[in-house]
Structures are given as structure tokens and as C-alpha cells.
């Protein structure tokens, strides 16, 4: 069984994270910002799994489960807020949300 070097896994995780970060910074549609955050969380999970595989330990997959739970909670609340803002402002522009208070 050939081994996958841990560096290549971390490099792919870094590429995915950078793509997600670019999406968060560049997009103004709230839905795309949420998707980019998902991509970044997923890249972090990939780094965890890679590290776990490097040390042959289950800890990486346990951390992946925690990231999964965090992502699920984040996306539920985030999408609820996006729907609420869309209902009030009739737009998905993130700049519209800067006056959000209370």
C-alpha cells in the first residue's frame, strides 16, 4: 500500500482554505459567503484527518466529528439569519447587514 505524504494533504487543505477565504472576501452574496465558510471548515477538517493519518491515531477523526457538529450548528443558524435578513431587506448583499443591531 503506497502512502500519501502528509505534506500533500496539508497543501490541498491549504489550497481549499485559501479558496474559501477568497470567496468570503470577494463575494457579496450572503449565500456564497456561507458556502465559502463551509469550504474553509472542510479544509480544516481535511488538515485534521491528514494529521491523524500521519500519526495513525483516531484523534484526527474525533476532531473531524467536532468540526462536523460545529459546521452543522453554524449553517443552521447562519441560514436562518440569512432568510430573516432577506425577508426584511429583500436583498442578499452582505453590506446591507452592517446596520444589523439587536
Amino acid at each position: 500500500m503506497n502512502s500519501v505524504s502528509p505534506e500533500s494533504g496539508l497543501v490541498v487543505a491549504a489550497v481549499l482554505f485559501a479558496l474559501g477565504l477568497g470567496g468570503v472576501l470577494a463575494r457579496r452574496n450572503m449565500l456564497f459567503v456561507l458556502m465559502s465558510i463551509e469550504i474553509m471548515l472542510n479544509a480544516a477538517a481535511l488538515a485534521m484527518i491528514t494529521a491523524g493519518a500521519r500519526h495513525h491515531a483516531a484523534d484526527g477523526q474525533v476532531m473531524f466529528m467536532f468540526i462536523l457538529a460545529t459546521a452543522a450548528a453554524e449553517v443552521a443558524v447562519g441560514l436562518a439569519i440569512v432568510l430573516l435578513i432577506y425577508r426584511r431587506r429583500r436583498t442578499l448583499d452582505v453590506d446591507e447587514a452592517r446596520e444589523m443591531r439587536g
Binding site: V4, L34, A45, A53, G60, F64, M65, L68, A72
Partner: peptide, 23 residues
């Protein structure tokens, strides 16, 4: 490929399944 079959299954079920359905 990294030797984490449980994580692979959860990724498909929870991420590609449940979270994407929300989107």
C-alpha cells in the same frame, strides 16, 4: 485514501447530504 473510512462516510452523509440539503 488517508485511511479514515468513518470520516469519509460522515463527510458524505452529513456534509454532502444534510448540510447541502439545508442550502
Amino acid at each position: 485514501a488517508l485511511g479514515a473510512p468513518l470520516a469519509a462516510a460522515l463527510e458524505v452523509i452529513v456534509y454532502a447530504g444534510a448540510i447541502m440539503v439545508l442550502f
